[in-house]
């Protein structure tokens, strides 16, 4: 692409091409994970993959779509619940886990026409109310037995090692597909549209951006992603207690990962998920203080480093490993990048 005189508009840089190649290699390496990682690491990595999904989805919604939701646990819980329902209806367990998020995605379409008319904080708490209502309604289902909960019994038909490997591969596949979907979406026309809406909805509408359709797309994608994270969590835990799955804690984790990694940056949430995973591994046992720390970090990052760690690095060095924006390159000398 070319810009004005003396300016080249680029998307890829040698750095990002290298990074994407490394990422491809890493994915191939990860795909063979269960063969060399051992049971403990396989389980832990599955958890990390689920965190990456959650962070990427919340970031797509809030960082790019400007839609801060405190109710994503609704989809997380519904994803797990739908999997249990589908399995109960006779579907094979893993098929149920794959179809459940898509089913939740279907439910989120009518919800979106409603929720997306709420603005800012109204949307944030409105989604929270929806999550509470979804929780209460799921509790009404006799199959769930209220807060006692139930299990995805069909999974116990698999040997523990088989199930562990299948969970891992499923998590890896879902993560890859969802992150790639966000990547491609952001690079497409939709990506420019959604960011224009985030920055100024009226102005975006005035230049012909289809506001509702674009927001709906990102909302449904985030719903499917969070539902997939819920279904995958069910696959690892097997048991389903509504209280656990519909807890606002999940959204708190998403917010923490996204804020620390970098809200509105593509690579940030992945970094945030890794940081959260490490913190959880080392401090998760310290109970309440760990949660106090998460809250404090979210508060401090939103105040002092609103673009997170990755955002600060990007602003300073102009690096983009997975480029979703464009760079202006001045011909005479290598210039600063702008995304």
């Amino acid at each position: 692409m070319s810009g004005g005189p003396g300016i080249v508009v680029q998307r890829w840089s040698p750095l990002s091409i290298g990074a994407m190649s490394c990422l491809g290699a890493l994915l191939v390496l990860l795909a063979f994970g269960p063969f060399y990682l051992g049971p403990y690491l396989t389980d832990r990595l599955t958890t990390l993959l689920i965190y990456v999904i959650m962070a990427a989805m919340w970031n797509a919604l809030a960082g790019y779509g400007g839609l801060v939701s405190v109710g994503q646990q609704a989809f997380f819980g519904l994803g797990a619940y739908a999997a249990i329902r589908l399995s109960h209806a006779g579907l094979e367990a893993y098929l149920a886990l794959i179809l459940a998020p898509l089913l939740v995605g279907l439910v989120s379409v009518p919800l979106s026409t409603f929720a997306l008319r709420l603005q800012g904080g109204e949307f944030a708490i409105g989604m929270w109310v929806f999550a509470e209502l979804a929780h209460l309604l799921v509790n009404l289902d006799g199959l769930v037995q209220g807060e006692t909960g139930t299990s995805l019994i069909a999974l116990s038909a698999f040997a523990p090692d088989t199930r562990r490997a299948l969970n891992y591969w499923l998590a890896l596949a879902v993560m890859t597909v969802l992150v790639a979907a966000v990547f491609l979406l952001l690079r497409s026309r939709v990506g420019a549209s959604i960011q224009a809406i985030r920055d100024n909805q009226e102005a975006a509408a005035s230049v012909g951006v289809r506001v509702m359709a674009t927001k709906c797309l990102i909302f449904v994608l985030a719903a499917v992603g969070c539902a997939a994270a819920g279904a995958l969590t069910l696959a690892t835990l097997i048991s389903f207690q509504p209280k656990t799955y519909f807890s606002v804690q999940w959204t708190a984790y998403m917010i923490f990962m996204t804020l620390v990694g970098g809200l509105g940056t593509f690579e940030g949430p992945v970094l945030g998920a890794v940081i959260f995973f490490a913190i959880e591994t080392f401090f998760g046992g310290s109970g309440v203080w760990y949660l106090v720390g998460l809250g404090a970090c979210a508060l401090l990052f939103s105040l002092f480093l609103p673009r997170g760690i990755w955002g600060a690095l990007r602003d300073r060095f102009g690096i983009a490993l997975m480029p979703v924006g464009y760079r202006l390159q001045f011909r005479p000398r290598a210039g600063k990048a702008a995304t």
């Binding site: 708190a252 106090v292 939103s302």
Partner: peptide, 24 residues
């Protein structure tokens, strides 16, 4: 100052912090 959405994030972080400090 850093946008209309930031207060949501900071007050949510504050809520998580307060709830758990009270529990502690």
């Amino acid at each position: 100052r850093s946008g209309a959405l930031t207060p949501l994030l900071s007050t949510f972080g504050l809520a998580v912090m307060l709830d758990n400090l009270l529990f502690e």
